[in-house]
Structure formats: C-alpha cells, structure tokens
Deep mutational scan, measured.
Amino acid sequence: PEEVRRLVEELYRKGVSPEQVKKILKKQGIDEREIEKVLRRIG
C-alpha cells in the first residue's frame, strides 16, 4: 500500500538500515511482507 511505501522511503532516506526499517514498522503492526516488497523495489 501507498502508506507503507511512504513510511519505508522516509526511514530509508534518513539512513535507517533495511533491518531497522523492518523492525520499526513491524512494531507499528505493518505486515513484514509488505515492508520487504517495498525495500526490494527501493534497494
């Protein structure tokens, strides 16, 4: 979803590592598979 992409990109631009991005967003209840999809697209 758009909102997940925005959150991931925001953290990524701040220099947060992909592993940390995953941890942070998982705590917020976001599906890990969604996060990984976005990270793959960015990375």
Rank of each mutant, 00 (worst) to 15 (best):
E36N: 05
L7E: 03
Y12E: 03
V8N: 00
L25E: 00
R13C: 11
G29Y: 02
K14W: 08
L25K: 00
L39R: 00
I30A: 03
R41I: 15
K27I: 07
E9W: 14
D31S: 10
K23C: 05
R41K: 15
G15I: 02
G29Q: 04
E36H: 03
R6H: 07
E19N: 13
E9S: 06
R41C: 08
Q20V: 11
V8Q: 00
K14S: 12
K22R: 13
L7T: 05
Q28R: 08
L25P: 00
R33V: 12
P18I: 09
D31E: 09
L11A: 03
I42F: 14
P1T: 12
L7K: 11
P18H: 04
Y12F: 12
V8Y: 02
K23P: 03
R13G: 07
V16W: 12
K22Q: 05
G15T: 02
R5T: 14
D31W: 03
E34N: 03
K26H: 05
R33K: 12
P18Q: 08
V21M: 09
R5W: 14
P18Y: 04
K14I: 10
E3L: 08
L11S: 01
V8R: 00
R6M: 09
E34F: 05
D31R: 05
R40N: 15
K23G: 08
P1A: 10
G15K: 06
E3A: 11
E19M: 12
K23H: 10
V16L: 08
K27Y: 09
E3I: 08
R40T: 14
G43Q: 15
E9Q: 10
L39V: 03
R33F: 06
R13V: 08
L39S: 01
K23A: 12
D31V: 03
G29T: 01
Q20G: 09
I42K: 03
E9C: 11
G29H: 04
Y12T: 07
I24V: 10
D31A: 08
L7G: 01
R33G: 11
L11Q: 02
I35D: 00
G43L: 15
E2V: 09
E32Y: 03
R5I: 13
R41M: 15
R13N: 11
I35H: 00
